[in-house]
Design a protein around this nucleic acid. Structure first.
Lengths: 152, 152
DNA sequence: CTGTTCAGCCGTGGATCTACCGGTAGATTG
DNA sequence: CAATCTACCGGTAGATCCACGGCTGAACAG
């Protein structure tokens, strides 16, 4: 459990989060390690589940999703299966966080138009009351951890 | 602008979002295309900005970030530079969405402990009133578009 | 001190992948 | 019809991946 990550591991993590397709030889060059040592470390990070996968980042607006919204869902019941099913079916729901507080779920939703968003929110309103906020802009598409957490 | 994506392009996007490190030859096999044709399409998607990058997914809990939270920030002023600076400095702020509604910003924040989160929220409270919700769980780490948006 | 163990690193060589080339079929245009 | 364009294919040289064995230094027991 207590996998201690040394500075080289963190350097690798920073690099692969920035460029997930960097060849292992080039990665080794950047962190001052041979290709084989780099390969071993990356494989260790992968099989330990620290690197859980690699993914391409797709620009939503350029593929037709002009509208991004944050929808908070106040969900009175505790029948979670129908909601899980909706999440599995509707790929427009990019992310779903279950949280503390009045709004049990916080969703990130992409839609092609306001009409499309309206339809999605209608489906969600089946489950409870919703609060929707449109997204003007997001600073970074995503950003991962760059080092160990501050110790307090 | 109106880059029309055919079903093969979408198949490629789905695959590289699921496995960003798949070799182009294997990717071609999966979408029934030769390696060179696949390479051309991927490069076109990249240079058109549709694929904006590749990144490794790091499991936050396994690298010491035990706490995930959604912080909404009500930001009365319109001096945005100091906030931008904080975002650039604090890598614990994973995502920052500027939205409509009372809460101008919605942030996703990772912390190593409640004390660490408290400190981060204190820094944010310099800018305005905050609402913090802890995250119990998230369905998928992330999910991108799997096809064109519904037409309405 | 000496020998053992082990983790981490390196270099090597065969298999695989990438980048680039020319060639072809079908659609479009003049 | 000829010219052109797009998307595809196959082939090849060079780069990369991957599994292997050897090397080194630290930790440790005798």
């Amino acid at each position: 459990m207590t996998e201690t990550l040394d500075p080289t591991d963190w350097a690798i993590l920073v690099e692969v989060q920035r460029d997930g397709r960097v060849p292992l030889t080039e990665l080794g060059r950047r962190v001052n390690l041979s290709a084989s040592a780099t390969t071993e470390r990356v494989k260790r990070l992968e099989s330990a589940g620290i690197i859980s996968g690699y993914r391409a980042d797709v620009d939503l607006t350029r593929v037709g999703y002009a509208v991004l919204a944050v929808v908070r869902l106040k969900y009175p019941g505790n029948k979670h299966e129908p909601l899980r099913k909706l999440l599995a079916d509707r790929f427009e729901i990019l992310e779903c966080l279950r949280t503390t507080g009045d709004d049990c779920y916080t969703l990130k939703v992409a839609a092609g138009s306001m009409a499309h968003l309206e339809q999605l929110v209608n489906e969600l309103t089946e489950f409870g009351s919703t609060t929707t906020n449109l997204v003007y802009s997001q600073t970074q598409p995503y950003r991962g951890p760059q080092g160990p957490p501050a110790e307090l």
